[in-house]
Computed example of a mutant assay.
Amino acid sequence: MERWLIVAMFTQVLLTFIVMYIMGKRRFRAAKQKTIEMKDFLLMELEKAGDNVRVADRNFINQFEMPVLFFIACLTALQVNAVGTVFVALAWVYVALRIIHSVIHLTSNTLKARYYSFVVSSFIMLIMWVLILVRIF
């Protein structure tokens, strides 16, 4: 079980690197098209770069917000021996929803769908934390 939890964690890390790649590609394209200048990166003033660049930047930042709590939950579960089938399944559902959230955010950016994927993934993570608490008490 622990192995599959670590693979889920790696998948979330891989998502972060994929988003970073997309963000970099969009930034370089904007710089090449002269919609932004290199000096704009000094203070990350990317308003002129367009929504495409700013959305990718925002999605990259998202990878260091709620997913941090996911990583802490997984590491805590490993430490307190709370990793079971349900916990691992929830971890994979969380990661799948984060992938869906990023795909929506980086493509159509449909607010309602993006919102629901975020809310459900957050609820899944809360359940993971409750499972840890149940295990230790």
Rank of each mutant, 00 (worst) to 15 (best):
58 R>E: 14
104 I>T: 05
18 I>P: 03
29 R>L: 10
73 A>P: 05
31 A>Q: 10
114 R>A: 06
59 N>C: 15
114 R>D: 06
21 Y>T: 14
121 S>A: 15
116 Y>A: 06
50 G>K: 02
15 L>W: 12
8 A>W: 00
47 E>C: 01
101 H>T: 07
89 A>W: 07
137 F>Q: 05
28 F>D: 08
61 I>G: 12
128 M>S: 01
11 T>E: 02
3 R>A: 11
50 G>V: 04
103 V>A: 11
7 V>P: 00
19 V>Q: 07
76 T>G: 01
106 L>E: 07
136 I>N: 04
124 I>L: 06
76 T>Y: 04
3 R>C: 02
97 L>I: 06
34 K>I: 05
13 V>F: 14
134 V>D: 06
132 I>R: 01
85 T>R: 12
108 S>Y: 09
1 M>L: 14
120 V>N: 03
7 V>W: 04
60 F>W: 14
16 T>N: 08
68 V>Y: 01
94 Y>I: 05
30 A>R: 04
121 S>Q: 07
134 V>Q: 09
47 E>H: 08
126 L>F: 14
30 A>G: 07
57 D>T: 13
5 L>Q: 03
91 A>V: 00
131 L>D: 01
79 Q>R: 09
20 M>D: 07
126 L>V: 13
54 R>W: 07
64 F>H: 13
6 I>P: 00
95 V>R: 05
